[in-house]
Structure formats: structure tokens, C-alpha cells
Design a protein around this nucleic acid. Structure first.
Length: 573
DNA sequence: CGTGTGACTTAGGATCAGGTGC
DNA sequence: GCACCTGATCCTAAGTCACACG
């Protein structure tokens, strides 16, 4: 108990009304760390590993060779067959070549990287063969040395203390910059953030940091500017840290405040569907989508800089279709667009007549690539939301709807008389309902079909085993009836137990199969980690006597330590 | 109000490690 | 003892949103 108090006291002493340690906007008073771990320097490949151009061996200069190895390492990936990837890569590669190389190497198709590729495959095989002690030792040393910092009297785990190594940029979806060279980050690119009175991290010998600053209004320890989009990257703390935990808690408290006023907000936006002002109607319909369908806000994006994806406010006319009647339902809207990470959102939903009529109006005289909500953007929408509730933004609706759905579904799906595996299936189904709402998809695992077959084979075997056991039970019963002695009675009991055990095992396997099948293309992790108030899950575990380890693994328990300590079995979101 | 920037959360895929079944 | 599979962890891209500036 004591340990628990010590562990959580650093922010559980605060309450829901004062989340943060400091009232002046500072995030910490003391911060000390060792700086980042740089990517290992380039190791030239052995001279017997050859690169061929137009069938002829060619020794590359170190700079050109390094970039060539980046491509070679990706040879098995579909990426390297894509035109844009190849074009971007070749352009950036040429920049690293010597003048002679550039003059000679003019066609990527004539480049043969296969020896390099084989070499790296062999290397990774060799690495696999290393004993785990060898691998672990180096990792552990780096982790202990660089993986922690001191922030306000606590030793905290750092999330990403390694600098991203150079390589070829892999964007998601149809990214116009895929294949570009992501350059190596050097000490002179690095900004260090720490407190003045801390021991500052030293740059590697003979190098200098770009800057050392002492900004306690931010939470990052290290930053640098990345060369593909020109955006800033950060080294920050692990989710188990006080600073991340408090923020997470705060996020769910904001969503709970939305719960209290969501009815009012819904009434209001329904009212606004009738507004005389187009701007307000658009705002109200967009908000309805965000609330009902858990769409993301949808910021504008710079054309040509990223893949063409949209969210609610950036939907275009081409992304929806209107059906006055469809499959026996009235006023159906069909959504089909690429959202974050170029994940497809496809949904057909019946909507209120007013919404439907408004959409028709918004689409009048527009081209397919015109904005659906031409009088709206995320900034306008969020300003409006801020007026409706302090701290309300578009994404709060996702958090709110995800969490409230989990809580409701758990109530509906959990039945008291089921055993633990069945209850966990119910939990996963509730989790799945949320993942579907939030459109959290995954590529079906490559081995899915096979592993499903394996599981089915196990189930069949278990069924056979069960019928054998039942037959044995039956005959032992018959036997006992004839003999009427203690020994045969006992035998019946034993057989009965065996049947029960096998039935339980079979049921467990069947549950597992159902769970896996239903989960084929759905990712549960994202909602569990980012949208579901962990106190709902903790309360559910406590209520039904489910060990919390069945729901959260070690990392998740660390991240949600605050909730595990805080929530009782009667917690209501 | 529009635009750019910075800080932070959310996201799926790749890779790793450890357990399981043969 | 080993191959295989799965869940955990790592990686870093891609979002959200506030705020400064003109």
C-alpha cells in the first residue's frame, strides 16, 4: 500500500480541478538528462559485396554507397517498385554521388543492388543468431545511460532517446515524397532543453550542439528539424511519466465534462441545421458528423506536400454520395474517403432529413473536388466549440464517444454467469465496437488464414477428445450401475471432471477463434491506448473479479497506473 | 481573418522477444 | 532443443490544435 502511495503520489495529490503542478504554465522546475543517442556511423560494406551498373561492377564513393545501401535494404519492399519512390530516391541519390558517378549512373533500372541486399539479409540472420545476452547487454547499457531523465525529483523513462537513423522516407499511402533521402542528424542539428541548474548533456567529442535552452514551458528534452517536411521532431517522456499521465487524465476529464453537456450541444446543432446562415448550417452538419461518426476534425493540408487525405472539415463533394432511398432506408449518405494514414473510411449511414437536405444544398453547383463545407474550417469549428464548453475541441467528441461506447457495451455484453474467458471476449467485443466506430483498421496479418486453420484443427481435435471422454463417462456410469461399489463411483466422478475440463478447454478455443476472426481487420490497440478512459476498464475488472493483467499488459499498466490506483468498481465515466 | 510554426497526441507497420508445441 | 507464432515493443509518420504575426 505504501509503495502505491509513493508511486502515484506525484500526481494523485492533485485533483480533478487542478491538474497541473504549476499555475504559471511551467511544466517542470528541474530537468536533467544525457541527451540523445545518435545513429551509429555508416560502416562501409566489404569490398567483395559489389554493386553493378549496366552489368558492370562499380565501386561507389562512400557517400553514394551509403545511400545505395538504404535502397538495397528495401529491395524486397513494394515501395521500391513505385515510380514516385524511385524518382525521388534517384534524384536524392544523385546529389550524393561524385561528378563521375553522376555522369555514369543515369538510369536506376540499370542499377543492380542484389549483392548488397543479400549481404544485409545475411547480416540480420547473423544478428538473430547472436545470443540474447549479447544483444541485450548493449541495449540495456544504452537504456540505463540515456533512457532516463530527472524531472522534478522523479527519475522518468524517456520514450525515444535514439535519434532517427538516416534512410529513405517511407510515407503512408500515395505520398509525393516517398523515397526521398532522410538525412543523418548530427550534434549541430540538435537543440537541448534542460534546466539551467542541471548538469547539461555533453555533445560527442569535437562537436557542438546547435543550442542549449532552458524552456520549462515545454516538455521536450531534445529537438531537431527533419528535412523531408521541415517539421520539428522531439525527444519526450514515456507515457508512464507524470507529465504524460496527468495530461492523459486531464483529457478524459474533459471528455467527462462533455458528457454533462452533450445533450445541450446536440439540441443546439440540430437547431442550427435550420439557420439562415450557411456558415452555421455547415458548422452544424459537420459537428453532427464528428459526433455521430467520430470523424476527425480535418485540418487543411498543403497540396503536394503530403498524401491526399481528409477529415470532416476538409471533406470534398467527391467523398460523399446521397441516396434519397437505399436498401429500404431513407436519406442515406455514403462516405468514401482516405483519412489519417490513408486508411479508407467507408460507411453508409441514414441521416435526418434536414441533414440530407442541407448536404444537397452544400453540394449544389460544385465540382467533385470542391470543399463540401466551403464556409468552414477546423479553426472556426473549434472556436465555436470553445464557446460551448471550456476546453472543448473536435477531438474531444472522439474521446467521449469512444469511452461512453465502451462503458455502455460492457454493460450490455457482460453477463454475470459467464466464466472469465467469456467475459474477456465480451470486453474485446466492447473494445471492438469502439475500434469500428473510430475506424481503427489494420492489414490482416500475413499468416492469418494459416493460423486460423491451425486453431480450427485444434478445435476439431478437442471435439474428438470430448466425445471420447463423454463415451468413457457413459460406459463408466453403466459400469457403476452394475457394480454399485465405491471404486466405480469414483471412476465416474473422475470421468465427469475430465469431460468438464475438456469442455472448458474447447470453449476457450472456440472463444479464441471467434475473437480472432472478428478481429481480422480491426486494430484494438489504438483505442485502448488513446481513447478509452482506463478507469472504465479498471472498474469493470474490479466489478467482475477479472485480473487487470488480462486486459492491460505491463506497458499498458505502467501507462495507466494512475487509473489503476484511482478507480473503484463503481467508477462511472 | 489567414498563414505559418511549434508542441503535442494519435496511428499503423516493422521488428523483436519470449512462449508454445512438436 | 528448435521452429514457429503471437503479443509486446519500437519506430516514426500523420494528425490536432493553440498561438504569434501581419
Amino acid at each position: 500500500m505504501n509503495r502505491c502511495i509513493l508511486r502515484c503520489s506525484h500526481f494523485l495529490l492533485l485533483n480533478a480541478f487542478s491538474f497541473t503542478r504549476y499555475t504559471d504554465g511551467s511544466k517542470w522546475k528541474f530537468l536533467e538528462h544525457k541527451g540523445p543517442v545518435f545513429a551509429p556511423p555508416y560502416e562501409p560494406i566489404p569490398s567483395n559485396v559489389k554493386f553493378f551498373y549496366d552489368g558492370k561492377h562499380m565501386k561507389l564513393s562512400p557517400g553514394a554507397e551509403e545511400v545505395a545501401t538504404f535502397f538495397a535494404k528495401m529491395l524486397d519492399h513494394e515501395y521500391t517498385t513505385k515510380d514516385i519512390f524511385r524518382k525521388n530516391f534517384f534524384k536524392d541519390w544523385k546529389k550524393e554521388m561524385t561528378a563521375e558517378e553522376r555522369a555514369k549512373i543515369t538510369d536506376l533500372k540499370k542499377c543492380d543492388f542484389t549483392e548488397m541486399s543479400e549481404y544485409f539479409k545475411a547480416q540480420s540472420e547473423a544478428r538473430k543468431a547472436m545470443t540474447k545476452d549479447e544483444k541485450l547487454a548493449e541495449n540495456e547499457r544504452l537504456l540505463q545511460e540515456y533512457g532516463f531523465c530527472i524531472m522534478d525529483n522523479h527519475r522518468e523513462r524517456i520514450a525515444n532517446f535514439r535519434i532517427e537513423p538516416p534512410g529513405l522516407f517511407r510515407g503512408r499511402g500515395d505520398h509525393p515524397k516517398m523515397g526521398m533521402l532522410k538525412r543523418r542528424i548530427r550534434p549541430q542539428d540538435i537543440i537541448i532543453n534542460c534546466s539551467k541548474d542541471s548538469k547539461h548533456p555533453e555533445p560527442p567529442p569535437g562537436t557542438k550542439w546547435k543550442e542549449v535552452r532552458h524552456d520549462n514551458k515545454v516538455t521536450w528534452l531534445v529537438s531537431w528539424t527533419e528535412n523531408i517536411q521541415g517539421s520539428i521532431k522531439y525527444i519526450m517522456l514515456n507515457p508512464s511519466s507524470r507529465i504524460k499521465g496527468e495530461k492523459d487524465w486531464q483529457k478524459y476529464e474533459t471528455a467527462r465534462r462533455l458528457k454533462k453537456c452533450v445533450d445541450r450541444i446536440r439540441t443546439q446543432y440540430r437547431e442550427d441545421w435550420k439557420s439562415k446562415e450557411m456558415r452555421i448550417r455547415q458548422r452544424a452538419v459537420a459537428l453532427y458528423f464528428i459526433d455521430k461518426l467520430a470523424l476527425r476534425a480535418g485540418n487543411e493540408k498543403e497540396e503536394g506536400e503530403t498524401a491526399d487525405t481528409v477529415g470532416c472539415c476538409s471533406l470534398r463533394v467527391e467523398h460523399i454520395k446521397l441516396y434519397p432511398e437505399n436498401e429500404g432506408l431513407e436519406y442515406v449518405v455514403e462516405f468514401d474517403f482516405l483519412g489519417k494514414d490513408s486508411i479508407r473510411y467507408y460507411n453508409k449511414v441514414p441521416v435526418e432529413k434536414r441533414v440530407f437536405k442541407n448536404l444537397q444544398l452544400f453540394m449544389e453547383n460544385k465540382e467533385p473536388d470542391d470543399d463540401l463545407f466551403d464556409r468552414l474550417n477546423t479553426s472556426v469549428l473549434n472556436k465555436h466549440l470553445q464557446e460551448l464548453m471550456d476546453g472543448l475541441t473536435a477531438k474531444v467528441f472522439r474521446t467521449y464517444n469512444a469511452s461512453i461506447t465502451l462503458q455502455q457495451q460492457l454493460k450490455v455484453l457482460t453477463s454475470a454467469d459467464e466464466n472469465i474467458p467469456a467475459k474477456i471476449l465480451s470486453y474485446n467485443r466492447a473494445n471492438r465496437a469502439v475500434a469500428i466506430l473510430c475506424n481503427h483498421q489494420r492489414a490482416p496479418p500475413k499468416t492469418f488464414e494459416k493460423s486460423m486453420q491451425n486453431l480450427q484443427a485444434k478445435i476439431d481435435a478437442k471435439r474428438d477428445q470430448l466425445s471420447d471422454a463423454k463415451r468413457e463417462l457413459k460406459s463408466s456410469k453403466a459400469d457403476a450401475k452394475v457394480r454399485r461399489d465405491e471404486k466405480s463411483k469414483k471412476a465416474v466422478e473422475t470421468k465427469k471432471k475430465a469431460v468438464q475440463r475438456i469442455e472448458e478447454q474447447l470453449m476457450k478455443l472456440e472463444v479464441q477463434a471467434t475473437d480472432r476472426e472478428e478481429n481480422k481487420q480491426i486494430a484494438l490497440g489504438t483505442s485502448k491506448l488513446n481513447y478509452l478512459d482506463p478507469r472504465i476498464s479498471v472498474a469493470w475488472c474490479k466489478k467482475w473479479g477479472i485480473p487487470v493483467e488480462k486486459i492491460y499488459n505491463k506497458t499498458q499498466r505502467e501507462k495507466f497506473a494512475w487509473a489503476i490506483d484511482m478507480a473503484d468498481d463503481d467508477f462511472e465515466f
